[in-house]
Amino acid sequence: MREIFSQELNDLHVCFSEMGMLVNQAVYNSVKAFVNHDRELALKVIRNDVVINECEVDIERRSFEIIALQQPVTRDLRMIVTIMKASSDLERMGDHAVSIAKSTIRVKGNRRVPEIEAAIATMAEIVKKMVEAVLDAYVKRDDRRARKIAQHDQQVNEAFQRIYERCITEMQQNPDTVIGSTDYLLVSTYLERVGDYVTNICEWIVYLKTNKLIELNVNNKETL
């Protein structure tokens, strides 16, 4: 029985890792599509979201089956809870990637501001690295690294603030950019939220390792 349980737990772990890679690619492609005005890539992100949603449903189903049939305790139960909670965060990250992709389609043909798009691309790169790092930290059960990854969310917040201020200035000076700048604000907001969800996953990694539920980045002053 223990061998069967271990295999089921490993399969669950693999499903989560695969979902994480799909989400990371979705976030990357959505911003790439937005910055490059690539409508086809944006549509691909939107179409592929159904796979991410199916992954979350599959993880939830597998998790409940393991809990019901194997009745795991202590660390094994924490791992299942972590995967369920973190997969929910991943699904929301995928939703934000779709929202960015939809912005690509919506603003096609509007006046664009290259400087702001470059700033969004830079912000997206920070977020992408955070997503990749948190997935690696999860695989390695590295709670110390998770805490450090969460601190990078401050960089995302600062990038968002710079983009916000630039957009407001642009709209005041160039009324023709109001529609486009509004989408820039939305896209940067979606990226900022993805950073928040990465922080949530960091917190679940800490829980998995320490059995303690903590809140990272409280007032952006989390002490390592």
Rank of each mutant, 00 (worst) to 15 (best):
R145H: 10
Y164M: 12
L22V: 00
N220F: 06
S181A: 15
D49K: 10
A42E: 05
R78P: 07
R193Q: 12
G20K: 00
N24I: 00
R166C: 11
V134T: 00
R62E: 13
V73T: 14
R78F: 03
Q155S: 08
I4M: 14
R147W: 01
S30F: 00
I105A: 13
L77A: 12
V198I: 13
D196C: 12
E170H: 04
E117N: 12
W204K: 09
A97C: 11
R106D: 15
A86L: 01
A119W: 02
T210Q: 03
V187C: 14
L77Q: 10
L135H: 05
A42N: 07
I59V: 13
V113L: 15
R111S: 15
M84D: 01
I66M: 10
L69M: 09
A118S: 11
L224G: 05
V139R: 07
D183M: 05
L90D: 05
F160A: 04
L12G: 07
Q151W: 06
I126L: 10
I126C: 08
E91Y: 03
S88K: 06
I149S: 10
Q172N: 14
E65R: 12
V113A: 12
T223Q: 10
A137V: 01
T169Y: 06
N157M: 01
M19T: 00
T82D: 09
L90T: 03
M130F: 06
D183W: 11
T74Y: 12
E91I: 01
D38G: 04
K209S: 11
L41F: 02
K140E: 05
Y197C: 07
R144C: 07
M84S: 09
Q161L: 03
I120L: 03
V57I: 14
R47A: 15
R62L: 12
L12Q: 09
V98D: 06
L41C: 10
E40R: 04
L213S: 01
R162Q: 09
N211K: 04
N53R: 13
A133N: 06
R145G: 10
M93I: 11
D142P: 11
I179D: 12
K212C: 00
R147L: 11
G20T: 00
C15H: 10
R166I: 07
N10I: 05
S188C: 14
A146C: 07
L12H: 08
I80T: 04
Q151C: 11
G195F: 02
M123S: 03
R75S: 15
M84H: 01
K128M: 00
D183T: 04
M1N: 11
K129F: 03
